[in-house]
Write a protein that binds this DNA or RNA. Structure first.
Lengths: 223, 223
DNA sequence: GTGCGCCAAATTGTCAACAATTTGGTCAAC
DNA sequence: GTTGACCAAATTGTTGACAATTTGGCGCAC
């Protein structure tokens, strides 16, 4: 659903593809991004690549040094924690706003996602659980209707994707996470902003703590 | 201090200048940004302008439509409120982190700024007060040491500059704001994260409320 | 007079060539 | 053997020309 006759430039297209290649880990952190090579790989000219690199630099996914080219930005461990903390602050606000401003359709969808989530846990389907998790947060964002927060969250998430799968795969995580999610859904559906905020804070603190553990473990075991 | 022999490209330079022109209001909201004109005005070639527009688009300061050019993005009233709410969430976190992680030098500077601020209020110097205000928030950000949050805050602020001066100039605002700032400084210097968070929340809620008032007033009186 | 198609001007998108800079290696001098 | 200058290759930065698209106006039919 992206190659129809809708007006779109090569630039925007290649930017999206390059962004995905980075977030999906097909390009390693600190890997050099050589304009000519990328231009050939994506079958566009260098100007488009240049544009894409400039935008991804602004996004924080790429670092560019004058006359010295671009690299995939490596998020350090400290940075990953910073990002998680900032994400926490915004997700908490989003949960509150979703509780206060959400509509009936949203609440219905929220309950459906929760149900689906329960099934994923009983069936031990980690992949599906991860999808439900994303869907739930997405629905909360939609209900909150704060486009600014949504934009920021999506860029923050794009910086963490590489790391967060470690957390999801931790033993016992889905069961714990499920309970937290149910508390969030209950509070939001009840229209209780304070409770939603508390529940989301609990959830994100728990996530952040595990992220720190995962990072610490990787630091010891990785090299 | 920008034309020395430090390596810098025309692109980065013109991006900063264009960004400033937009935030300072020298370019009106919705104004068309024609590449050739800008290139002539800034004495660079179109490619640099193109790059700058792409980055500012990513920043949210400019909107670009394929084949139809770029315009200065107009932040709607609803959006301004969204931005203020999101900023609140992050500033609150920054205040907490500043309280927990701040160093002695930072605390000293904070007290100095507060003192300066008091003087600005007694002397009714709104411009100087505004500077102190910026300095205080900047110092808190430095103390918190959360680069991610800092980056986000600076873009959020750049979207609000046009509006916030209305709030500062409201009668009685500096005196009220001063009391709020003193509470923040006290809590942060005491290393009390909870209190710092509360104080900053109070302050930002008060700011957001006034922003809404200012927006409402402008909507009635403006046209 | 109103609507419709068409053309020209303005503007953005794409491209390739050229200039400037960095990088890595070689060779000579010490 | 090490240091330093210098050169060549690789890469990025800049420029101008050309192609594609949109926009606004003009004339024509009705």
């Amino acid at each position: 659903m992206s190659d129809s006759r809708r007006p779109s430039t090569a630039d925007a297209d290649v930017t999206a593809r390059l962004r995905e290649a980075i977030t999906r880990g097909q390009l390693s952190p600190n890997e050099r991004l050589i304009e000519a090579d990328l231009a050939e790989h994506f079958a566009v000219n260098r100007a488009s690549i240049r544009m894409a690199l400039a935008m991804l630099d602004q996004d924080g996914l790429v670092v560019r040094l004058p006359n010295r080219g671009a690299r995939v930005r490596a998020v350090s461990d400290e940075e990953a924690i910073e990002i998680a903390e900032t994400r926490l602050a915004i997700e908490v606000m989003v949960a509150r706003q979703a509780a206060l401003r959400g509509d009936d359709a949203g609440r219905t969808r929220l309950r459906a996602i929760e149900k689906d989530m329960r099934r994923a846990v009983t069936e031990n389907d980690a992949a599906h659980y991860s999808q439900c998790n994303a869907a739930l947060h997405r629905e909360l964002q939609r209900m909150a209707g704060n486009a600014t927060a949504n934009r920021i969250l999506s860029t923050l998430k794009s910086h963490l994707v590489r790391l967060q799968y470690r957390v999801i795969l931790l033993p016992g995580r889905p069961r714990k996470s499920l309970a937290e999610h149910r508390a969030i859904v209950a509070a939001v559906c009840a229209g209780d902003g304070d409770a939603a905020e508390r529940a989301m804070r609990e959830h994100m603190i728990s996530f952040t703590r595990l992220l720190k553990q995962a990072i610490g473990a990787a630091r010891l075991g990785g090299f």
